[in-house]
Design a protein around this nucleic acid. Structure first.
Lengths: 181, 181
DNA sequence: CCTTAACTTCACAAGTTTGTGAAAGTAACG
DNA sequence: CGTTACTTTCACAAACTTGTGAAGTTAAGG
């Protein structure tokens, strides 16, 4: 083996599991948060493994974890990590980085990145708008149903625009309150 | 039988199915919109039957349909209608009304109501905030992870507030553009 | 108060999703 | 250029979901 034993990075003095060991980082507290936050994300419609991986990354000190670390924290197979990360990367909720001089990858939450991803359900809304426009056309804008669809469409157009402005304001607000990042 | 045959309200001259019959309301066009809009809602994470029922209601002229009408339009069993409506009612996306002097119920989309429901993922966001607050407390607000969680929390608090304002603006905008309703 | 229309609940079969172990692919390092 | 650490893909079993028919419940109308 080229490296010690791998995966000893966070483990340190964590052999016994006394409730109150509380060294640098209390693994139990972290795990409790990870699982409860992930559960809420799942309730809101996110898939389980992506939610758990995401929560784990969010509560790591560096904001990055390797595949092995994720597997240990969450007690899941490398295959499950791989699938979850692929999903999250597609949604732009995590970035993948190659650790230089190693064959490990690290996965990272860019805080910024994920706010944007969350609010920019853009693609989704655009498709709703498209379907609604088709509906207005085919049912006729002068029928009661057509008018209802047109109004719904107007609502989404409005929301679209407003959300973009809101995110501009957030960036300012955030800068003031938390500085760079 | 007390009433004609029930469910003859929309059917009218719709016996044959020539592509171009286009009388009062082209059943085929309606169905096409219903299914395509429902499909988009499903993509976005909504369950199938609720999505289809919702789309059907949205594209009805009166904004209301009975259980039988929904069953016929969507070709699903009364049980499926019942389940879907229960789901939608819980989310405040449809209202149930008893048709006076009959044992039928009618289900209605209040256009308003559903905008509110869609944006007021409130309950969801509140629970995220709660979980995040717990996380900040247990990991410590002075740790890097704690700071990340605190910032995420701040983001949701910001969004919460902004969405409320946005909906106020929408009500005004809507009033101007579409009048009462 | 009995009959019956309308809705709901329930148990289950069919279909879909999820996470795994094993095998295959990729790239760092000697 | 072979070896080995790491990641991804794949086929499948287990778990969960979904929609149905049938039985059960509620309440309108006689």
């Amino acid at each position: 083996m080229a490296e010690p034993t791998g995966a000893e990075r966070d483990a340190g003095p964590e052999s016994g599991l006394e409730p109150e060991s509380g060294p640098a980082r209390d693994a139990e507290a972290v795990s409790k948060f990870v699982e409860s936050f992930a559960a809420q994300l799942v309730e809101a419609g996110m898939q389980r493994m992506p939610a758990r991986v995401f929560a784990a990354l969010l509560s790591s000190d560096s904001g990055t974890m390797t595949s092995v670390e994720l597997g240990e924290q969450l007690r899941i197979s490398p295959a499950a990590v791989s699938g979850a990360v692929r999903h999250l990367a597609q949604q732009h909720m995590v970035a993948r980085e190659r650790e230089p001089g190693s064959r490990r990858e690290r996965y990272r939450v860019h805080s910024n990145q994920w706010y944007e991803a969350l609010t920019s359900r853009e693609a989704v809304i655009k498709r709703w708008e498209y379907a609604l426009r088709e509906g207005v056309d085919s049912l006729g804008g002068d029928t009661p149903a057509g008018r209802r669809l047109a109004e719904t469409l107007a609502f989404f157009e409005f929301v679209d625009d407003e959300i973009a402005r809101m995110m501009d304001r957030w960036r300012v607000h955030r800068e003031e309150r938390f500085g760079g990042g």
